[in-house]
Design a protein around this nucleic acid. Structure first.
Lengths: 265, 265
DNA sequence: ATCGTTGTTCCATTATTTGGAACTTAATTT
DNA sequence: AAATTAAGTTCCAAATAATGGAACAACGAT
């Protein structure tokens, strides 16, 4: 369902916009279009206020209201996202290297960055597999149970890391998901030392990965890349072997960023 | 570039939100990240006001501010869009039929819906290449020079059509792009009669398509599906032949919507 | 027909946004 | 290095928009 996806409905200091974004979050996180009354219960606002807010969101195309009075996410969001994705510098620079890594290993390669407590997947390159689960791009996943997430956390300065981890609410997706700050922090330290991370079926049963951290010098992007696949095919031994190419690819991406953005930053 | 993309910066009656969305449009439509001063010039607002607005957008993750003080679209937009896309009922129902159509013809198949003056592409099924989300999905294209767009327009009641066309600003993308309301309206009438539309390299040189209109009974979705490909491979004769299967697929999608959403609407 | 539910509109009160100007910081020129 | 210009940030009284309670409509079910 919702997992913890980055702490949706916190009171932010962004005035009117913040309140509207909470609503947008509510509707986009729901499993199905919501009726006015459903939102009323969830948002806990006066009817008149909520009605106007929803109307504004609909007029702007951020939400859509169907013939049965149900609110769904608006398609304008797709337009915004398509632009945001097409032009993202980090992704553009990383793409060829992701492709190389996919070629070399034959498995699916991901690029993700840390935003708040979540990893947002920026790109994905997969083999010829007929199953197209390309919904992964744009998806937000928890940072504490994904390879890319833990790799990203290993880049944070001690204090930020403590703060972030303190705010996590752990959801146990599988038997091996971290459920305490202590064990997570211990693993993060280990990852920081060795320079790569594993996901041992911590987010999804049967799926594991090796990941390496990637960052831009201006710290706009703190993230990672990973090689992901089914556990029956990817032994821990194999994953250990792949740690090297993943780290190499990560290095090339960072080098690309330096060249692209200029040396002094 | 920008084409005309649906009339970005109109003064809407959505209060604070409308003003912020204009800014978001500005930044996402730009070809590169914008400096504060660039936005200041484009938006024509007092510095203090603009600064607070941008700060709010950044705090909400809708924009991002890099180390050089340049504003880029925020990654939270991707998260919203991924959800909005994954759950879209129209797309979910259409997908298997798009797949069938791709199999039958071997060419790329698109699903798009009308939003304002633009077609927003909701899905795309292509040959052996793995789909890259957002490569086309989510993109907004003009309605007057795409097969899906003209098919969608043919569904509008006379009055809405006139209004919409009256508001168009025609951009001549190729030699065959419609540049006047008269010729466009004439073709739309023809399309309404025959039930399918062509794009004869009107948006992009060398690319043509056949499209059929698709709509949901509650008129939440007014759109179309198309088979698209390079003109050297797709003769007009071939496109004429494909008009039948495209219309059949469109029919099945509409039938699927009826079943899914219930008969009385 | 009546009642309860759901959705919409209205308007005085309240809170937020506005925009001009003063201020700080960074970059460029002399 | 000092002076000058540009770029970015903060402040606050005035203008504007959001709020929320209540009254009003529309719809379904009994």
């Amino acid at each position: 369902m919702d997992s913890n996806g980055g702490g949706a409905a916190q009171a932010r200091e962004t005035g009117t916009l913040g309140k509207l974004m909470v609503l947008l979050d509510l509707v986009t996180h729901a499993d199905a279009p919501l009726r006015f009354t459903d939102i009323l219960a969830l948002a806990g606002q006066p009817r008149g206020t909520l009605h106007r807010q929803l109307t504004h969101l609909v007029e702007e195309g951020l939400l859509e209201l169907d013939g049965d009075g149900r609110y769904a996410p608006g398609l304008r969001l797709l337009d915004f996202a398509a632009r945001s994705w097409a032009r993202n510098e980090f992704r553009l620079i990383a793409e060829p290297h992701l492709r190389d890594l996919q070629q070399a290993t034959g498995e699916t390669v991901h690029l993700g960055v840390l935003r708040g407590q979540s990893i947002i997947y920026l790109d994905k390159v997969e083999g010829r597999q007929p199953v197209r689960m390309y919904s992964q791009i744009g998806n937000a996943s928890p940072c504490y149970c994904t390879g890319v997430g833990k790799a990203a956390l290993s880049l944070l300065p001690a204090e930020s890391l403590i703060d972030l981890v303190a705010g996590l609410r752990f959801t146990s997706f599988t038997a091996s998901t971290h459920v305490s700050a202590e064990t997570l922090l211990a693993e993060i330290r280990e990852i920081a030392d060795q320079g790569y991370a594993f996901d041992r079926e911590e987010h999804e049963a049967g799926i594991c990965c090796v990941a390496a951290p990637v960052w831009s010098e201006d710290r706009t992007f703190i993230g990672g890349i990973s090689i992901t696949g089914p556990a029956y095919r990817l032994s821990m031994e194999l994953l250990h072997q792949w740690a090297v190419p993943v780290q190499l690819a990560a290095g090339k991406i960072m080098e690309g960023m330096r060249v692209r953005l200029g040396p002094r930053r």
